[in-house]
Amino acid sequence: MTEYKLVVVGAGGVGKSALTIQLIQNHFVDEYDPTIEDSYRKQVVIDGETCLLDILDTAGQEEYSAMRDQYMRTGEGFLCVFAINNTKSFEDIHHYREQIKRVKDSEDVPMVLVGNKCDLPSRTVDTKQAQDLARSYGIPFIETSAKTRQGVDDAFYTLVREIRKHKEKMSKDGKKKKKKSKTKCVIM
């Protein structure tokens, strides 16, 4: 069974824990209790493949930012979460993405942009803004509501699919490099 290491990042209060708990335990946590770091595991079937999701729910508070490099190193894919009623959390996505790329030393890291709290009427981040940002990053965008469960499975499952595509691409690139290195030079 394939294991996928997913990391949920975003500013404090955007609903990272609520999304994760909704996926794992099928219930909505409405009281806000700032996370330092929590880890969850769940076995699911995605596109006919049974897999184990190892999900790291991270601290959004700035005082825990020193811990970010460590979990970013171990993560295979990242859910970059903002709240649709919090423009600052949307603007912060850029910083999370840049930090992930720096730590992973790669421009090509599996990510999904997630606009959470889409059940709320007080939207300050337009869907088109988020779609445009995701398009500019070359990553999928999904709106979710941890409260109603809308888009929750889709967000995590899409990230797994992005990781699969990335692994497939990397193995193809690896095979191309191996083929090239088999060419021999004969000096007579």
Rank of each mutant, 00 (worst) to 15 (best):
41 R>P: 10
124 T>Q: 11
157 Y>H: 13
166 H>K: 08
135 R>M: 13
62 E>K: 05
37 E>D: 06
101 K>T: 13
104 K>E: 05
163 I>M: 12
188 M>P: 15
84 I>Q: 14
25 Q>L: 07
54 D>I: 00
33 D>C: 07
24 I>W: 10
67 M>T: 04
157 Y>R: 10
61 Q>W: 15
138 G>N: 11
29 V>Q: 07
124 T>L: 09
134 A>Y: 09
136 S>N: 08
165 K>F: 06
109 V>E: 05
184 K>L: 01
162 E>K: 12
100 I>M: 15
21 I>E: 05
98 E>V: 02
114 V>H: 05
60 G>F: 03
124 T>R: 10
76 E>C: 11
43 Q>A: 01
170 M>V: 13
38 D>Y: 04
149 R>V: 07
44 V>F: 03
83 A>P: 12
127 T>Q: 09
13 G>Q: 12
138 G>V: 05
32 Y>H: 07
95 H>D: 12
147 K>R: 12
166 H>S: 12
38 D>K: 00
6 L>K: 03
3 E>M: 08
169 K>Y: 14
130 A>D: 08
100 I>C: 09
6 L>E: 02
31 E>R: 03
83 A>Q: 15
84 I>D: 15
126 D>L: 09
93 I>M: 15
154 D>H: 08
46 I>W: 07
33 D>K: 03
129 Q>F: 10
58 T>M: 08
56 L>N: 01
77 G>H: 03
86 N>P: 01
106 S>G: 12
84 I>M: 14
169 K>C: 12
75 G>K: 03
76 E>W: 06
151 G>N: 13
24 I>S: 11
51 C>H: 04
132 D>C: 07
34 P>C: 01
117 K>P: 05
180 K>N: 05
41 R>E: 02
14 V>W: 02
101 K>L: 09
106 S>E: 13
154 D>G: 08
19 L>T: 11
84 I>R: 11
44 V>P: 01
105 D>I: 14
55 I>C: 07
127 T>E: 09
174 G>Y: 15
123 R>G: 13
125 V>R: 07
188 M>G: 15
109 V>M: 11
183 T>A: 11
33 D>N: 06
136 S>A: 12
124 T>W: 11
20 T>C: 12
102 R>F: 04
100 I>S: 03
17 S>T: 12
54 D>N: 03
46 I>Q: 15
123 R>W: 07
171 S>E: 13
12 G>A: 02
162 E>F: 03
157 Y>K: 08
13 G>M: 11
67 M>V: 06
44 V>T: 06
5 K>I: 02
98 E>S: 10
64 Y>D: 07
96 Y>G: 05
54 D>F: 01
11 A>G: 07
185 C>F: 09
106 S>Y: 12
187 I>R: 15
18 A>I: 05
76 E>H: 04
126 D>A: 09
27 H>W: 15
19 L>I: 10
86 N>K: 11
135 R>N: 14
55 I>L: 04
158 T>R: 12
35 T>D: 00
68 R>H: 15
111 M>P: 03
51 C>A: 10
170 M>T: 05
124 T>F: 09
25 Q>G: 07
11 A>D: 14
165 K>I: 13
46 I>R: 09
81 V>S: 11
70 Q>F: 03
69 D>N: 04
86 N>R: 07
23 L>E: 15
168 E>D: 12
19 L>A: 14
96 Y>V: 10
30 D>K: 05
112 V>A: 05
119 D>I: 01
38 D>I: 00
123 R>H: 11
179 K>R: 10
138 G>R: 14
31 E>I: 03
156 F>V: 11
113 L>S: 03
20 T>F: 04
47 D>M: 04
157 Y>E: 12
114 V>M: 12
178 K>R: 11
38 D>P: 01
70 Q>T: 00
29 V>W: 06
59 A>G: 14
44 V>R: 02
21 I>A: 08
123 R>I: 09
167 K>H: 13
25 Q>R: 11
45 V>T: 04
63 E>K: 01
127 T>S: 10
112 V>W: 01
172 K>Y: 14
51 C>E: 05
105 D>Q: 05
3 E>L: 05
59 A>Q: 14
184 K>V: 03
63 E>H: 03
35 T>E: 00
